[in-house]
């Protein structure tokens, strides 16, 4: 008998594959089901036993949803607020982090402490005072009412600061030799060296802005100013649960854009969303 035990021949891990297949189906099926249901006619939806595929795909549900709520307007609002909100968050975060890392000013430590503190104060807790303030400014049912209270992103500032600390100080000296002021130094020297972090923060901000619900829901009750998730609430109240096809068509409109962003930019987005685990 040989002393060395022979390597076990590799067997196909059937159990693992079955479990993985099952998990994938369970986790993915609801999304497929939503998409299919949004294309079904009421007859096909309310039929037992359930019918899996729509007989012929039609967009009636989408058209009907657009009649109940201003779907195009909601989409435009969501796209606009997401782009403006995410951009401002990134720009403000970059400026704040730049000052915290590259400038010397009194009470710098205290300012950074404040940033960390806001990171720890959960946003949901502050809705009542924020609402009172926004209402007293007359900002209910306005875009700035939705946008402004969430602009100071401690998350972005924190990640940018972490990254800026790893940059060599000499780039600032190079910028100064070039005669660049702080603004130019930030955009021409620091930002180009930070593209992965900027991309990650931007993507996370896009996802959070798009999905944000409680705050825009409280601030806006005029359909013309609503974002998509808030408009979905309106549709739920109008059509109730009697008209699943229409409600699900609107749900597809809310979820599909972010789903596409996720599929295309998966690696960067995941890097941003899981960044807390590495830094925290």
């Amino acid at each position: 008998m040989s002393v060395v035990t022979p390597r076990r021949p590799r067997r196909l891990p059937v159990g693992s594959y079955l479990t993985m297949a099952l998990a994938t189906v369970v986790l993915g099926l609801p999304l497929v089901w939503m998409l299919l249901a949004s294309l079904k006619s009421p007859d096909e939806l309310y039929q037992l036993p359930l019918q899996w595929l729509p007989g012929q795909a039609n967009l009636d549900n989408y058209a009907q949803a657009a009649q109940s709520v201003p779907l195009g307007r909601l989409l435009a609002n969501s796209v606009g607020l997401t782009i403006v909100g995410a951009s401002l968050k990134v720009v403000l975060g970059l400026c704040c982090a730049y000052a915290l890392v590259f400038l010397d000013f009194p009470f710098k430590k205290a300012v950074f402490g404040l940033v960390i503190a806001t990171l720890m104060i959960p946003p949901q807790i502050t809705i009542i005072p924020n609402y009172t303030l926004v209402a007293s400014l007359g900002w209910l049912n306005t875009y700035q009412g939705i946008l402004v209270p969430g602009l100071a992103s401690a998350f972005g500032t924190f990640l940018f600061r972490q990254h800026f600390l790893t940059l060599p100080r000499s780039i600032l000296e190079a910028a100064e030799l070039d005669g660049a002021g702080h603004w130019r130094a930030l955009w021409r020297f620091v930002v180009p060296m930070s593209t992965p972090t900027v991309a990650a923060v931007a993507l996370v901000s896009v996802v959070t802005e798009w999905n944000d619900y409680l705050w825009p829901f409280l601030v806006v009750d005029n359909p013309d100013k609503m974002t998509l998730p808030v408009g979905l609430t309106l549709l739920q109240n109008i059509d109730g649960m009697t008209n699943w096809g229409v409600l699900l068509a609107a749900t597809v409109v809310v979820t599909l854009p972010i789903l596409l962003v996720f599929l295309v930019l998966q690696r960067r987005l995941v890097a941003g969303l899981t960044a807390g685990a590495v830094t925290g």
Binding site: A23, T24, L27, G28, P30, L31, W33, M34, A37, V207, W210, N211, Y213, L228, P229, L232, T233, Q236, M241, W244, L247, L248, T251, V254, T255, I258, L259, V261, F262, Q266, L269, V270, L273
Partner: peptide, 18 residues
């Protein structure tokens, strides 16, 4: 598995209600 995490919580609620 990760896809649901990036979706709107409210939309996900409606989808699952169905």
């Amino acid at each position: 598995a990760f896809a649901p995490y990036v979706l709107s919580g409210f939309a996900v609620g409606i989808l699952w209600l169905f």
